[in-house]
Design a protein around this nucleic acid. Structure first.
Length: 195
DNA sequence: CGCATTTGACCGAC
DNA sequence: GTCGGTCAAATGCG
């Protein structure tokens, strides 16, 4: 999935998804001008949490980060509400990340997340991962697909200010004005599956 | 003092 | 042989 960077202050930092990630590696990727960062759950619940994520800044849009989530999570820092849209697993490219035919981890972590979703919506936030689904590279997880497939977890950076989905549009403007291209293909179908 | 981040090296897969 | 991914040790910061 793709996530816009904060255009305010630090566009260098990838947004927080409500979890704490510990960077365990960084690599320069062929085809990208920016290095890719590998994060893993900070608490990892005694190695129980296989949640991992790769953050790669798009060479086309330095204001956009490509975040690939892998595995499940068990460590919610509860700093920021969580938005889970398992639809990605069964909506767009189910075979891409899952490949073998893993069960879509939808009810896998329902209760806690649902509450979080309510909170997120209550806060008036929430991005539409549906727009990002199409751009998720998938098939990048090493050997994690055994417990959980790929999940597109979207959180809201509702911490600095109160910019909901508007932030996205705002970033679009920024990126569009700066780069002028890149998200073109990303947001080719820039229509909220909700509205 | 503890934890997180950083950088390099190592390993595996293609 | 190359690329991607992960681990491990060291350093810096909190």
């Amino acid at each position: 999935m793709l996530v816009p960077a904060h255009r305010m202050g630090n566009t260098e930092l990838p947004p927080d998804d409500g979890y704490t990630w510990r960077k365990y590696g960084q690599k320069d990727i062929l085809g990208s001008r920016f290095p890719r960062s590998y994060y893993r759950c900070t608490h990892k619940n005694y190695y129980g949490c296989d949640a991992k994520k790769k953050v790669q800044r798009l060479d086309d849009d330095p204001f956009m980060y490509e975040v690939t989530y892998c595995g499940s999570h068990s460590c919610l820092t509860s700093t920021t509400p969580l938005l889970n849209f398992p639809t990605a697993t069964a909506t767009n490219s189910p075979t891409a990340a899952t490949g073998s035919g893993l069960a879509p981890a939808d009810h896998f972590m329902a209760p806690t997340e649902q509450a979080a979703v309510s909170t997120s919506m209550h806060l008036g936030v929430g991005w539409m991962p549906a727009s990002f689904q199409g751009v998720a590279p998938a098939g990048s997880c090493a050997g994690v697909g055994s417990s959980a497939g790929m999940q597109t977890s979207v959180s809201t950076p509702a911490r600095d200010t109160d910019y909901p989905a508007l932030d996205l549009a705002d970033v679009m403007f920024n990126s569009g004005g700066s780069a002028g291209v890149g998200m073109d293909g990303i947001f080719s179908s820039h229509h909220r599956s909700d509205s």
